[in-house]
Design a protein around this nucleic acid. Structure first.
Lengths: 338, 338
DNA sequence: TCTGGCACTCGCGTGCGAAGAGTGCCAGAG
DNA sequence: CTCTGGCACTCTTCGCACGCGAGTGCCAGA
């Protein structure tokens, strides 16, 4: 077990390193923090911390930098979440309030998060499966061609063009639309399959094929993994860590282009509060030198999707966590209003 | 006026520089291209080309690199558009064909373009103002709250939530929906304002306020500059030019985050064919060392939006132009089908 | 257990010299 | 007038040695 002072030393190392981006030595530590002990003592503590794997030196004769394990301890035990200041809160609210539709909300949120944290922001669209149906619209494009439009309570809109096996009249279409809506409107998407399974039976034989096709398209839309969407922004912030660069930024940009990777990344965070995954805790290789701070957000009590930021492991964890949490809270409010 | 051979020298310089990314000298030139003259002659030609501002040397004792003006001449006079090979064409078609909706088409197009050109791809969503209305849907969310959903022939869907000045009944809503659609369905968006201006008069006095609100929201949606959307991808490709990096990539990433900048960028290209803007020809400062290759695409004869790529001025122009043109063509086809 | 002192290790910046690439110019040939 | 070969010159790049400074580890003493 580490003594109280050693934990303080670790905390000081993390704070200094995050601030300066440079390995921190024993002397500098005692000068910048009032630890009340001499550099020599700190050196001993550092040796112990290194022994335990919390810090490391890039090369002999340099200062120490925290390891992933060190950051983990810092986040779990040594630091809290830094709340946003009132002016910041107001700024967040103002920034999000002008949004005209869901795309706009998401886009603004991404920009906001990227600006606040000065890192790469990721915002997932509200998940269909965790939303409820507001309306299902069917439009006839051609005699045997129908467009299905799905609208959720969170403002998300999905559409599909369907080729029908047989021509489908306007009246049948109106009938299907009405029946569909009366069954599913206001219900949770996860309940939709069981709510519509017997629907074809209500139709004439010649229309049943088409009705089934429409319904199966509707259900396909809800298949997890297909239905998830997200938006990212603030990639320019990656260039702020320009030293080691090309080698470090490349895989990150590549990972960010893979929606699947990102969705998995966000999906892994099960914690109801702010989740932090540090360095190698991220499954994806390209993100081994980054940390991901994420949290769920939702219009009501329940999370309908996640948002977060990706940054270097040497980030300001308390501040980032605070910003992420605050933004999630306000986005939830905005969604609830619309 | 430049002699034929000097133009060939310029072409050779551009080709070699694009290939190797390194300043090209007179000796290497005569070896790699059969110019039929000696290095000394080429040196004289180079001096002339430099005099005219087509090439430059980074420092006294290095080879020459093309200037923006040199690339411009190359693109205009010395190189054509390199057509895609049949296998490439098939690959493009296959890649785009699986798309389920417009977002998917755009997303796939971005990925495709980024992969083909190994550069940053930008795809604009079909412009509303240049599309026709497929359907307008109105949904009642609350007694005095309506959702407006707009669907275009290109598959684009926009939605807005409207707070009405007065409660609006289901029947009035249905009435408005029917009248709206009968007037605007199939018509061009630019004609919508004049088609609906007298619509409030058909309603009871108490509903007129709401109808006007709905209509003005509809018209707002069409305001150019608000209605444009785009998607970008392939930013990881920026890291391929890793030498000069941090300084060069930073402003580009920043510019790419500014939708406004990008829209202006694409908007400036008036040419009906493939447009190339080289280096300083781009108004935005951050893009001064990049070139933008763009082209309009559309479901019919007319362009509904643009797509293109952003890359270093030292890019393979013929190949990039070929890829951009080919992709635009196929995207147009796909849109026409759906 | 903490502290001050001291020797040691390394990374980093600097200066210098050799190597190499490429140019510009010039005189001569076609 | 144009092209060519030769030659001197310039400038960048690279390798290497050197010294400085930061930081460590260890030890003896309080």
């Amino acid at each position: 077990m580490l003594s109280e002072r050693r934990l303080q030393v670790l905390r000081a190392i993390v704070q200094d390193y995050v601030g300066t981006q440079e390995p921190v030595g024993s002397k500098a530590l005692t000068e910048r923090h009032n630890l009340g002990v001499s550099p020599a003592t700190v050196r001993n503590d550092m040796a112990a911390l290194e022994e335990e794997g919390y810090i490391a030196q890039p090369h002999t004769s340099a200062g120490r930098i925290p390891t992933d394990k060190g950051y983990r301890l810092f986040v779990d035990k040594l630091a809290g979440v830094k709340p946003m200041s009132p002016p910041e809160r107001r700024a967040i609210q103002n920034f999000l309030e002008g949004a005209v539709d869901l795309d706009d909300v998401v886009a603004r949120t991404v920009r906001l998060l990227a600006q606040l944290t000065r890192q790469v922001a990721i915002v997932q669209y509200p998940s269909l499966t965790r939303s409820t149906v507001r309306h299902v619209e069917l439009l006839s494009l051609a005699p045997a061609r129908v467009m299905l439009v799905l609208i959720t309570d969170t403002g998300r809109v999905e559409q599909r063009v369907i080729d029908c096996p047989a021509p489908f009249g306007e009246t049948s279409l109106a009938d299907l639309r009405a029946r569909l809506n009366s069954r599913v409107a206001g219900r949770r998407f996860t309940d939709v399959p069981s709510l519509v399974e017997d629907l074809p039976e209500a139709f004439e034989v010649e229309d049943r094929g088409t009705v089934s096709t429409v319904l199966s398209t509707l259900l396909e839309t809800l298949v997890e993994e297909n239905e998830e969407r997200l938006m990212i922004g603030g990639t320019a912030n990656l260039t702020r860590f320009a030293h080691d660069f090309p080698l470090t930024i490349r895989p990150v940009l590549e990972a960010l282009e893979e929606q699947v990777v990102l969705l998995k990344l966000l999906g892994e965070a099960k914690d109801p509060g702010v989740t932090v995954r540090i360095g190698h805790e991220n499954a994806h290789e390209g993100l081994n030198s980054t940390s991901v701070v994420s949290v769920g957000y939702g219009s009501g009590g329940e999370a309908v999707a996640k948002l977060g930021v990706v940054g270097p492991t040497r980030m300001d964890y308390p501040g980032t966590m605070g910003a992420v949490r605050a933004v999630a809270r306000y986005v939830g409010q905005i969604l609830a209003e619309s």
